[in-house]
Design a protein around this nucleic acid. Structure first.
Lengths: 159, 159
DNA sequence: TATTGTTATACTCTATAACTATA
DNA sequence: TATAGTTATAGAGTATAACAATA
C-alpha cells in the first residue's frame, strides 16, 4: 500500500465491529500477523515455522517417534514425511529405526541441528520480547494462559 | 486416533514446554482448533471462513469497495476475485461498478445474502458462547482485548 | 503515470487412498 | 488384523507478474 492511508484519502473507515468482537476472527488475524513476522525473521536461517517446531521438539525429546510429533503438531503423517526427510537431508535430524519395534522412526538432532535450533530460538525470543514489551509482562502472561486454556479444549468432540 | 490415549499405552509424554511457552506457537494451535471447529459448523451452510467474513463486512458496509475488504482481510487482490465471483454466482452478493470511479466495484448483499449471513452469525455465536462458557466471561473479554492489541501491532514494520 | 480489478500461473500447505514393512 | 511410515495425488490457500479499463 502507498504511504498515505485510506483515512488520509478521506475514505470512510470499515465497520468491523462484528468480526473484531469474535475470538475466532481475532485469533486468525493475530496468527497471520505473528507468523508473517516470524517467517520473515526465520527466513535468514532457511527455516519454516513447521521445521522450527519439529527441531524444538526433537531437541527436548531425543528419540521421540515421528508419528507422535506429527500428531501433536496437527500435521498429517503423509505431510510430515517430506518435512523430516528435508531436515535429515540438511544434516539437522537423524532418523533411526527403533530396535524394539522396527516400524517406528526415532528422531534425534545432529550436532549441527542443535546449533541451528539454538540460534533459531534466539530469533523467537526476540519476537516474544517484542510482544511482551507492547503488552506488558502481566497481560502477556495472562494472554498466554488464556490461549493455553483454549488450546487444550477439544471443540469439535465436545459438541 | 484410537480411544486409548498414548499415556494409557505407557508412552512418555512429550516435553512441549518451550513451544507452549511462546505466544506464536500457542496462537497457531488455537487458530487451528478454533477454525477446525468453525469450518465444520459452517459446512452445513456451504460457507468457508473467508466467505463468511466477506459477507459480514458487506452486510455492515453496503457499497464498500472490493479492494478495501481484501486489504483488511489480508487477502491478496488476485485471490479475492474468485471468492467474490463465487458469492455473486450464488446470488449472495451484488457487484456494481462505481458511478463516480468506474475502476471500483461496490459490493452489496442480496436479500438472500442477508438471510444467509444472519443464519451463519448464529453458528458463530454458538461457538463464541461455547468458548465464553469454558473461559468465563471476564477471562474471555480480557483474552479478546489482548488479542486485539496484538492484532493492531505492525510487527514487521516496527522492527 | 497510477490504481482497480482481472487472468494466468506457480508454489505451499493440507487432505485422502493405497501401498510396505513390521507387529 | 492393526500400526508407522511412505507414496502418489488432489485440493485449498497464497504468491507474483502482467494485462485491460479507468482515472
Amino acid at each position: 500500500m502507498s504511504t498515505a492511508t485510506r483515512r488520509d484519502r478521506g475514505e470512510r473507515a470499515l465497520d468491523t465491529a462484528f468480526l473484531e468482537g469474535t475470538l475466532g476472527f481475532t485469533i486468525r488475524i493475530c496468527q497471520l500477523k505473528v507468523f508473517d513476522d516470524f517467517i520473515d525473521r526465520l527466513a535468514r536461517r532457511d527455516l519454516r515455522p513447521a521445521e522450527f517446531s519439529i527441531l524444538c521438539l526433537i531437541a527436548d525429546n531425543p528419540g521421540c517417534r515421528a508419528s507422535r510429533l506429527a500428531e501433536y503438531l496437527w500435521i498429517k503423517q503423509p505431510n510430515f514425511v517430506p518435512l523430516v526427510a528435508g531436515l535429515e537431508q540438511r544434516k539437522l535430524v537423524l532418523r533411526r529405526r527403533s530396535e524394539t519395534d522396527r516400524r517406528f522412526h526415532d528422531l534425534f538432532l545432529t550436532a549441527l541441528g542443535r546449533r541451528v535450533v539454538a540460534k533459531a530460538k534466539i530469533v523467537v525470543a526476540d519476537q516474544e520480547q517484542y510482544l511482551t514489551d507492547r503488552l506488558g509482562r502481566k497481560k502477556r502472561d495472562e494472554l498466554l494462559e488464556a490461549l493455553r486454556t483454549v488450546a487444550r479444549l477439544d471443540l469439535r468432540a465436545d459438541r
